[in-house]
Amino acid sequence: MKISEKFSRGEFVVTTEVGPPKGFHVEPLIEEAKEYLSNITAVNVTDNQSSVMRLSSLATCKALKDAGLNPIYQLTCRDRNRMALESDLLSAAMFGIENILCLTGDHTKLGDHPQAKPVFDLDSVSLLYTVGQLEKGVDLGGNELVGEPPKFCKGAVVSPCSDSIDAQLAKMERKVMAGAEYFQTQAVFDSERFISFMEKAKQFGVPVQLGVIIPKSVGMCRYLNANVAGVHVPDNLIDELKADKEKTKAGITGVEITARLIKECLPYCQGVHIMAQGWESKVPDILKLAGI
C-alpha cells in the first residue's frame, strides 16, 4: 500500500525503520519485524546507513514484503550513478515495492569504506525528479520505457533542528517541486524547535512525519550531540536519563521520553517515524504510551 493513501485520508501515519545486517542472513531481522512491527503502516529499510556497507536495502525490502510487511525503500545517491539508481527503481517496481524515500546520503569518508569513490551523480532533488520521469515512462537519457511505467509514493527527508534552517527549508521546497509527496524528519528531541519549524514548513502543503530516535543512554545522547548534524539532545533530557540508571537501562526512560515528544508534536504533524535502532521491541510500548 502507498502510504500517501493514508495521508490523503487524513490518518496519522506511523512508520519505523530497520537496518539490514552486515551479512546475508536476514531471518532474525524479519522475525523481529514480524513480531513487533506488523501493525506499523510501513517500515523503512536503510541504504548502507552511515556509509557502512551492508546487505542491500532493495533485497531486504523484498524479504520484508514477502513476510507481509509494507517496506519503504530508501535510496541514497552515494553508491550508484543515475543508471544504477534507475535500474534499481525498476527492480523495486517489479518486486511490488510501492514506497520509496530519496536521500543524498552521507559521504563515504564517514563510513567503513573511506577509500571508496563517492558517486553523487544525482542528489536527493534530482533523484526525486528522476523517479517522476520514470513514472512518465521515460528514463533520464530520454529513452522510452517498455510497458506500463512504475508508480511510487515518493518521500524525502528534512532536518528541522538544523542550524542552517533557512537553507534546509529552501532545499525542502526544491524537493516538493521535484515531486516529494511526504517528508520524514531527522530525529527531533526538542518539541518547541519542531513546532516552530512546522510553522514555516506547512506552507508547502506536504505531510510531514516527526522523526524520533529512542534515547537509550547518556552516552548515546552525547554521541549524537557531538557527531550527528541536525540532532541536539537538550540537557534536561540527558538529566532525565541520568536520574534513574536502572530505569534507563531497562529502556523505560527512553520509551517515556519518546512517547512524550510524540504527544507534544502530534497536533503539528501528520505522522511519526520511529528510528528504534535495535530497540524495535519497544515500539509497541511507545505507541501505546503516546496514545496512538
Binding site: 543524498t104 552521507d106 559521504h107 564517514l110 563517492p118 553523487f120 542528489d123 536527493s124 532533488v125 534530482s126 527527508v157 528534512v158 532536518s159 538544523s162 542550524d163 542552517s164 537553507a167 534546509q168 529552501a170 532545499k171 526544491r174 531527522q186 548534524a229 541536525g230
Partner: peptide
C-alpha cells in the same frame, strides 16, 4: 559532495560533515 541542487543534511554549525 559537489551537490548542485542545494544543501544536504550534513552541515553542523555551518561546517561540512
Amino acid at each position: 559532495k559537489s551537490l548542485v541542487n542545494g544543501q544536504c543534511g550534513g552541515a553542523k554549525d555551518g561546517k561540512c560533515e
